[in-house]
Design a protein around this nucleic acid. Structure first.
Length: 640
RNA sequence: GCCGAAGUAGCUCAGUUGGCCAGAGCAGCCGCCUUGUAAGCGGCAGGUCAGGGGUUCGAAUCCCCUCUUCGGCUCCA
């Protein structure tokens, strides 16, 4: 007999070779039916695996959080593979793992797949699921497994077995349902019948092991849930995200434009520019508060400069080049060399440090055509960049100041949860051990009192860094800011300052950005808000709607007064019905519509309506600006 | 860059197996209506069917090339 402990603390006695399923059955037949996996000492395992004595056991069902989704999708991936094999007997199988919102499987097939093939594959999958086929686990030695897959002509599996062998594994596990056998670590559902609902989503190409020198495989993306309702909810969420796609909203709200004449180079339209300028104004306010000085460096600089900065060797593929008077020039992909030249423009004293030079730097990078994606991935963008030149012992305070900047600034957009990651020394690194130790210690010290994750070896070759992420209203996380120490560039550009004891010293350079790319941040903001920008960012904050022609003059009075009070206000005096103009105002997501007719002229007021139909009521003209700004403050957004 | 899909008016889309002057809704422009909290009515204009080359008596439709867009190419059995 063995004893296992259940989550509520009770001890359960079982036979020596009892499995997770046996335990579930012992607890109750209902649980046995609902069981998806067993969590043994915190590790998810197959229900059919024999339980060790004295284990902490939890039977995983749909109700026990999202743990089961991983197992369920993993199993669904095998079902997908079997279905594909039944339709394409000569298919070769790559990887088929669960991912965040579903799973995928990579295949090598005799012909390309398209969505038209989905119904046949889904139908084959349903058959396998309905049959409630067991997932049988077996263990083979590396050699046996290699021979097994070689006999079946599954080259990718052989490759993976060898990879695992090289990594030191002596045995691997296999899972079989019907005649389909796959190399797999598991765990899996007890049988295929426990996959509640699934759907094939898309087909795409993917390289074997993600290497672009390897064969291109066909990847099928799909998702699976324990029940149809969860699947439907997921699909609805995808629809919502699609409706909020910043590319669509950017066009509908006339914020920006992409043209064939410049693939990947955004055009900012007047309304989009208002938002960008508001963001930059807000940033400048902080820059001033924190003692930065703003600079602007040239867009195009000599090739020689990029050779000495190291970009020529490491970044040439992504740069644009041009020839002027038979001399080579490059368009800047980063602002740091320019900032270094500003530092070097005259002799510097220790008294000037820390020297904080900020730049809204418009950089150009040649990204591969296939990766371009709206404002998220572009070929030219504006970094809210800064370079801080300081001594080693000033790093701590400077980083603290950046953290303060980050927290204050993100909160303005409603991003008040910031995930922080510290990346440390990578294998190939420039600089001395002592420098790295001091720099990492300085960063860690600056991060004291703050939760952060350490990413070992993920730093840049020139120094450790801190990255900052926020989570948007749809639960997606985005990396925005970064704060990187750099010992290499001061060296490369021979930057020096005169110390207190009249000696030449090398400054440290801190690269930092708060939003990263302003273009990308606008895209994130659009999807986060669905276009309902906070009042202080709205391109048009209010729109005055005269009920009929005879109210036009009064409408102009209201508009002009609010403009004089600093608000961005327009007047829609088209000869359209008032209902129509309200509709247009709402579709353009103008935060407030101010309707003026006989009653309002009489009372020297405007009837205020929010963009989601909120009735705010008649407000005297003299009080409108104050009221709207007050409502904005109530909503937590700060203005400048 | 690579794999797959797509490109018809500013936007969203029709356009049967190649065959009369390529259509609609919205947006735009011009009138009429003078309007009270999400679409008033009528008219007009707008397209080298992404571009180039080919097949054909005839091409938006079939073939080739180029460009652009979209989904992917990290999540390691």
């Amino acid at each position: 007999m063995i004893t296992v402990t259940l989550p509520d603390g009770t001890a359960l006695q079982l036979a020596d070779d009892a499995t997770g399923l046996d335990a579930a059955t012992a607890i109750g037949p209902g649980l046995a039916k609902a069981a998806l996996a067993a969590k043994v000492n915190g590790e998810i395992r197959d229900l059919a695996r024999v339980l060790p004595d004295k284990a902490a056991l939890e039977i995983v069902t749909q109700k026990s959080g999202d743990d089961y989704l991983y197992v369920l999708r993993h199993t669904a991936a095998h079902v997908l593979a079997e279905a594909v094999e039944s339709l394409f007997p000569d298919a070769k199988f790559g990887f088929g793992p669960p991912i965040d919102d579903g799973f995928y499987y990579d295949f090598e097939l005799s012909r390309p797949l398209s969505e038209e093939d989905f119904p046949a594959i889904e139908s084959a999958m349903r058959t396998i699921i309905k049959a409630r086929v067991g997932m049988d686990r077996s263990v083979l030695s590396i050699d046996e497994a290699r021979a097994f897959f070689a006999a079946r002509d599954q080259g990718y599996k052989v490759d993976q077995v060898e990879f695992l062998g090289d990594r030191g594994e002596t045995h691997v596990s296999l899972y079989q349902q019907n005649d389909f056998v796959d190399l797999c670590q598991g765990p899996h559902l007890h049988d295929t019948g426990r996959i509640g609902a699934f759907k094939l989503l898309s087909v795409a190409g993917a390289y074997w092991r993600g290497e672009n020198t390897n064969t291109m495989l066909t990847r099928l993306y799909a998702t699976a849930f324990a029940n149809q309702a969860d699947l439907d909810a997921y699909l609805a969420r995808v629809e919502l995200a699609k409706a909020r796609d910043h590319r669509r909203l950017g066009r509908d709200l006339e914020l920006f434009h992409f043209d064939d004449a410049g693939p990947g180079f955004p055009f900012f339209l007047p309304k989009g520019m208002v938002i960008v300028n508001q963001i930059q104004t807000a940033l400048r306010g902080e820059l001033e508060r924190l003692g930065y000085q703003e600079i602007r460096t040239p867009m195009i600089l000599s090739e020689d400069l990029w050779k000495s900065s190291g970009h020529w060797d490491h970044y040439r593929e992504n740069m644009y080049f041009t020839q002027v008077d038979e001399q080579g020039f490059a368009v800047k992909p980063m602002n740091c060399p320019g900032a270094a030249l500003v530092f070097r423009s005259r002799r510097r004293s220790y008294r000037e440090l820390p020297l904080r030079l900020a730049e809204f730097g418009h950089v150009h990078r040649h990204e591969l055509s296939g990766v371009l994606h709206g404002l998220f991935r572009v070929r030219s963008f504006t970094q809210d960049d800064a370079h801080i030149f300081c001594r080693l012992d000033q790093i701590h305070d400077e980083v603290r100041s950046v953290l303060d900047f980050i927290d204050r600034f993100y909160a303005r957009f409603g991003f008040d949860q910031v995930q922080t990651k510290l990346s440390t020394r990578p294998e190939k690194a420039a600089g001395t051990d002592e420098m790295w130790e001091r720099a990492e210690a300085a960063l860690a010290q600056a991060l004291e009192g703050r939760e952060y994750e350490i990413k070992e070896g993920d730093g840049a070759f020139y120094g450790p860094k801190i990255d900052f992420q926020v989570t948007d209203s749809m639960g997606r996380s985005w990396q925005l800011g970064t704060c990187q120490l750099d010992f290499s560039m001061p060296e490369a550009f021979d930057l020096r300052y005169v110390s207190e004891s009249d000696a030449d010293e090398r400054p440290v350079m801190i690269h930092r950005a708060i939003l990263g790319s302003i273009e990308r941040f606008l895209g994130i903001l659009i999807e986060d808000t669905g276009g309902d920008f906070p009042f202080w960012l709205s391109p048009e904050q209010a729109r005055v709607l005269p009920v009929s022609d005879r109210h036009r003059d009064y409408a102009h009075t209201v508009r002009d007064r609010l403009r004089a009070e600093g608000l961005r206000v327009d007047c829609d005096e088209r000869t359209e019905s008032i209902g129509r103009r309200i509709r247009d105002g709402e579709l353009h997501k103008v935060p407030y519509l101010l309707i003026v007719g006989d009653r309002e002229v009489e009372g020297q007021a405007a009837s205020v309506r929010g963009r989601h139909g909120e009735e705010i009521g008649a407000i005297p003209t003299a009080e409108i600006a104050e009221t709207l700004l007050g409502r904005d403050a109530q909503h937590g957004a700060s203005t400048n």
